[in-house]
């Protein structure tokens, strides 16, 4: 069957791709170790908000709720985290504030799309626009912070060439995102909770018949999704930039959705996809660093967005979203 052959090739292709990337990294490291290390380290950090955003999307969508409000959740998390840092000077409190704000946004999204049964894409758009307007209104210029989260070197491991500086010399939220990828994977595929979440997202009626509270499961998952998106926002203001700017999320919440789809709604897949996008971003900054000016910076700036479109166009048909996505649950 040609179809089977195609699937075989496709499966092989993804492994070949991974092998090719690894080989390329080694060759590149052999040629210019410093640039390669900087590029990969930057890739990991740039992928942090995307992988967190994608995990947020996975929580919501696996339970059957579309979340296009990741952008707004991130923005609110970024803003509130920043304010908390300004007024308390305590970075831990600030991160918690960002996560809490995200939880509140998740609750709002859950209320609108689950209880009020609003169209979930409209509900997400409402939150995105409200987030943009609220942060714009309450933001005052000239607020300064006590600093931001700095890299924590993990002894011994950080001394391994290439892998050390790339993976074991990162700031806290980046570490946390890597841990979360594994935790969410286990939660989703190895626990009863995960099974129930997926059941609610695939076939809510069947889940209901076996005694799973569909509404409650969806609420909790969307709120957790909000918390993770809030953390992604916290990454922006508390770890990456150190201050807040209007609309600073710059579409990352939407790119994260493409990352989620590219990763086929799985945490590990999303991590791989996020690294690809992180690499596109890292390339952009490296270009500026190295002063490569033959390509106008606007074209390099388009890269992540074009990549998102290409990824969506190429993969959305092949990846299957949870079956009950977008439909409010009506108990009979």
């Amino acid at each position: 069957m040609p179809n089977n052959a195609m699937t075989m090739i496709r499966q092989r292709v993804s492994w070949l791709l991974v092998a090719g990337v690894v080989a390329l990294i080694f060759v590149s490291y052999g040629a210019t170790p410093a640039v390669t290390t900087a590029l990969l380290a930057s890739t990991v950090r740039q992928s942090t908000p995307l992988v967190l955003g994608a995990l947020s999307g996975i929580f919501c969508e696996r339970s059957g709720v579309i979340n296009i409000a990741i952008e707004g959740m991130m923005l609110m998390g970024a803003f509130v985290g920043f304010l908390a840092n300004v007024y308390t000077g305590n970075l831990l409190v600030a991160v918690l504030a960002a996560v809490l704000m995200g939880a509140f946004m998740g609750l709002a999204h859950a209320f609108m799309s689950i209880t009020l049964k609003m169209d979930q894409i409209i509900s997400g758009t409402v939150l995105n626009i409200l987030a943009l307007e609220l942060t714009g209104f309450f933001y005052q210029q000239g607020l300064t912070t006590q600093g931001k989260l700095t890299p924590v070197r993990i002894p011994v491991l950080a001394d391994i060439p290439l892998i050390g500086p790339v993976l074991f010399d990162n700031p806290p939220i980046t570490y946390l995102s890597l841990v979360l990828v594994v935790v969410v994977h286990i939660l989703l595929f190895r626990t009863v909770w995960g099974l129930r979440t997926r059941a609610v997202g695939e076939h809510p009626k069947a889940a209901d018949t076996v005694g799973i509270d569909v509404i409650r499961m969806r609420y909790i998952n969307v709120i957790i999704g909000g918390m993770i998106a809030g953390l992604a926002g916290g990454y922006l203001t508390l770890e990456a930039v150190g201050s807040f700017e209007r609309a600073m999320t710059n579409g990352r919440g939407f790119v994260a959705l493409a990352v989620m789809i590219f990763g086929k709604w799985t945490p590990l897949g999303a991590w791989g996809a996020a690294l690809l996008f992180g690499f596109a971003n890292a390339l952009q900054t490296q270009f500026q660093f190295l002063g490569i000016s033959t390509i106008p910076h606007q074209f390099v700036g388009m890269l992540p967005y074009l990549l998102t479109i290409v990824v969506l166009a190429g993969f959305v048909g092949r990846a299957r979203p949870p079956a009950a996505i977008g439909q409010p649950y009506e108990k009979e």
Binding site: F254, Y305, L306, T308, L312
Partner: peptide, 9 residues
């Protein structure tokens, strides 16, 4: 997603 990405482009 594609329309918002095209905004940035």
């Amino acid at each position: 997603i594609t329309t918002i990405m095209l905004n940035f482009v």
